[in-house]
Amino acid sequence: MTRETGQVAPRSVPDRTHRVHNGDISLAVYEFGPEDGVPVVLVHGWPDTHHLWDGVVPLLSDRYRVIAYDTRGYGESSAPTPVSAYQLSRLATDFFAVVEAVSPTEPVHVVAHDWGSVQVWEAVCEPGASQYVASFTSISGPNLDHLSTWMRRGVRSGTPRGLWGTLSQCLSSAYTTFFMLPVLPGLFFRLVGTERVWKLFLRLVEGIPAEQISLAPTIKQDMISGLRFYKANILARMFGPRERFTTVPVQLLVNTRDIAVRPAGYDDTARWAERVVRHDLPRGHWLPYSDPAAIAEHADAFIQAQPK
């Protein structure tokens, strides 16, 4: 597997497409690579769809059976109206439904980004998760319970480092306050939620060339619909964190230039997971666009390191 940072293949065309149903939720699922390959599930975040992984898929699908899906609220999947429909507990059932449908006889390896990672964290901390997930590579999406607990510990410590860690994360997360306001954020993204504006934002903030960014035609609707993820979960987890443990092996790809999640926020992960491997990368939040080869290399190495 060769690494060519910044080189992205054209939009990936799935070898197989189908829909997975979780109650009244219908999820669009896309498969790439050999049908008998080891299954690797890719889970996107806000405001993306499965196209987030267009640069990663060709680097993995030559040897793995790669499965990507539009999570609820995005792309071609169902987008229920109630905010409560986007609680992490419900998103985790979507994930398990996809895993059961695409790999009923063996656990899958998972790579997830942003809110995709947040919801997979919810799933892997459920009892019996290791029956479904063989490994989890997490990118720019912490477990919200773990993050809240870490921030609280920083405040209680009274040390400059602890206080600064919490303050810096609060500053990085300030945008979520706007996202949770009524009416206004929806109006904002109706005005500016275009492919051109979003690509310009990513170029200005992270230096990602437009040709490396793969968006769905539903980008505006996805931006607005995805706001429900924030409204359904942020305050609940920040004010009421739970103790959440996992036996699933976890790999953290920590982007040191991430504008949303500070690297120190992952420092306590080993308290909550039996096995954690961490790699700090000098990249911004949207690693799947800026350096898909890094994701493919680390994911491949982590998958190969797991017991067969």
Rank of each mutant, 00 (worst) to 15 (best):
Q119W: 03
V120D: 01
W121Q: 05
W121C: 07
E122D: 10
A123H: 02
V124S: 02
C125V: 05
C125N: 09
E126A: 09
P127A: 04
Q131C: 05
Y132P: 00
A134N: 03
S135D: 00
F136N: 00
S138P: 00
I139G: 05
I139H: 06
I139P: 06
I139S: 05
I139F: 03
S140Y: 04
G141F: 02
G141V: 06
L144A: 15
T149Q: 15
M151W: 09
R152N: 11
G154K: 10
V155G: 07
V155H: 11
L163Y: 05
W164M: 14
T166N: 12
L167Y: 13
Q169Y: 04
C170R: 09
S172W: 04
S173R: 12
Y175I: 10
T177Q: 10
F178K: 04
F179S: 10
M180P: 01
G186V: 02
F189M: 01
R190K: 13
R190D: 04
G193R: 06
E195M: 06
K199W: 05
K199G: 07
K199Q: 11
F201P: 06
L202Y: 09
V205T: 15
E206G: 13
G207R: 08
A210N: 11
A210K: 11
E211M: 01
E211F: 01
Q212Y: 00
Q212I: 00
Q212W: 02
S214Y: 07
L215T: 04
A216C: 11
A216E: 09
P217Y: 01
P217M: 03
K220F: 02
K220G: 14
D222E: 07
M223Y: 06
